[in-house]
C-alpha cells in the first residue's frame, strides 16, 4: 500500500539565520492509521517539519525535496495544490488559546469547518457538531461558550473536535500537552489514543516529552540539529537506544525514584549552541566520540534486524540499553 505521507530528502533552511539549516535530508513515510512520534530538543527542526507538511513554511525560507500526501505531490508555490494537501491534514498546536477565535463561540467555530466539508443544511450540521463534541467528550452545552471560558484541557479538546470535523486523515499534533497539567495531560493523551484507533487516524506527534510519545506512538524519530539520528519502533527506542543522544535524552527525563536522588543525569552542553561541524553534529557533546566522528558524517544505518536505524559510528551495544 502506498504511504499516506511520503517525505523524500527534505531540506529546509531559513536564510538570514546563519548557515545552519533547519532540516537536512529527511526521509519519512506515514501510513494510514500509523502513529509517529518526533522527538528532539527545542530548535532541532521538529516544528519546521510539521509546517512543511502543512505547506505553512514561512515565506522566504528555502527548501528542497519532495512531499506527497495521499499520492499527490505538495507544491508549496501553488495555492490550489496546497489547499488540497491541507484537506488531508489537521494540525493542533501547543497553545490552543492562540488557535481559537476569542470572539466567536466554539460551536460556531466548529460549524464553520463542518460547512466547508459538508454543505450548508442546518440539521446535519448540528448533528455533526454534537457528534464531534461527544467524540472528544465535551458536553453539548460547551458549544455556546467562548474560548476563554474553557480550561486549557477543554480548549485542546475543542481543537481535536475541529480536526475531526475536517475529516482529516492525518493529525499533526505539535506539543499538544506541553502547556497542560499532569492529570489533564494524561486525559488528552488517552483521548488522542482513542480517537486515533476509532477513526484510524494517522498521527504525527511532536514533543520533547518522551513519556507522551511512549503513550501514543508506535514509531519514533529522534531529531538532532535537523537530522534524524535514530528511527525505530517505540519499544526498541525505550529499551535499547543505540544512538548516544537518544540514550542521553532518555536518561535526562525527570523520573520519580524510590528515594530522593542526589544528582540528575544530563547531557553536557546545549544543542542550540553547538557550532556546525563537518562531522557528526552531536560529537561535541558525545561521550563515545572518536577522531572519526568529528570528520565524517555518519549515515543513517540499519541495525541487523532492519527495524532500528541510527546515525552513529560508535553506537551503544545492544545489551547496555536502558530498561
Amino acid at each position: 500500500m502506498n504511504p499516506l505521507v511520503s517525505i523524500r530528502d527534505l531540506s529546509v533552511s531559513y536564510p538570514g539565520r546563519g548557515t545552519a539549516s533547519a532540516l537536512k535530508h529527511i526521509n519519512l513515510d506515514i501510513h494510514h492509521g500509523e502513529t509517529v512520534g518526533l522527538v528532539g530538543e527545542s530548535g532541532c527542526g521538529k516544528t519546521t517539519l510539521a509546517l512543511a507538511l502543512m505547506g505553512m513554511l514561512p515565506p522566504g525560507c528555502a527548501w528542497q525535496g519532495e512531499i506527497s500526501i495521499a499520492g499527490q505531490q505538495v507544491d508549496f508555490y501553488q495555492q490550489a495544490g496546497r489547499a488540497s494537501a491541507r484537506d488531508q491534514c489537521a494540525m493542533i498546536f501547543q497553545n490552543p488559546q492562540t488557535s481559537l477565535n476569542p470572539v466567536i463561540a466554539i460551536g460556531r467555530q466548529i460549524i464553520r469547518i463542518i460547512r466547508r466539508r459538508g454543505g450548508l443544511e442546518k440539521q446535519p450540521t448540528q448533528q455533526r457538531l454534537a457528534e464531534v463534541l461527544s467524540l472528544v467528550e465535551l458536553p453539548a452545552e460547551c458549544s455556546k461558550l467562548y474560548p476563554h471560558e474553557l480550561s486549557g484541557g477543554m480548549q485542546q479538546r475543542v481543537l481535536l473536535a475541529m480536526a475531526l470535523a475536517r475529516q482529516a486523515n492525518i493529525l499533526i499534533a505539535d506539543e499538544p500537552t506541553t502547556a497542560l497539567d499532569a492529570s489533564t495531560r494524561m486525559q488528552i493523551l488517552a483521548l488522542l489514543n482513542r480517537l486515533q484507533q476509532q477513526q484510524n487516524l494517522a498521527v504525527l506527534l511532536i514533543s520533547h516529552d518522551l513519556s507522551a510519545i511512549a503513550r501514543v506512538c508506535r514509531q519514533v524519530l529522534i531529531l538532532y540539529q535537523g537530522r534524524v539520528v535514530e528511527q525505530a519502533p517505540q519499544e526498541l527506542i525505550f529499551r535499547q537506544p543505540r544512538h548516544p543522544y537518544s540514550a542521553g535524552l532518555l536518561a535526562a527525563i525527570p523520573k520519580i525514584h524510590r528515594r530522593r536522588p542526589d544528582k540528575l543525569l544530563s547531557l553536557p552542553g546545549d544543542a542550540s549552541l553547538e557550532a556546525v561541524t563537518s562531522g557528526c553534529a552531536f560529537a561535541p557533546r558525545c561521550s563515545r566520540r572518536d577522531v572519526y566522528c568529528e570528520q565524517q558524517l555518519p549515515p543513517l544505518n540499519c541495525a541487523l534486524d532492519l527495524q532500528q536505524r541510527f546515525a552513529c559510528f560508535n553506537p551503544r551495544p545492544i545489551q547496555g540499553g536502558l530498561k
Binding site: 542521553g248 525527570p254 544528582k263 543525569l265 544530563s266 544543542a271
Partner: peptide, 11 residues
C-alpha cells in the same frame, strides 16, 4: 526547558 537542560539547571 528541554529535559537535558532542565536537569542541568536543577543540579
Amino acid at each position: 526547558l528541554d529535559a537535558p537542560i532542565q536537569a542541568q539547571i536543577l543540579n
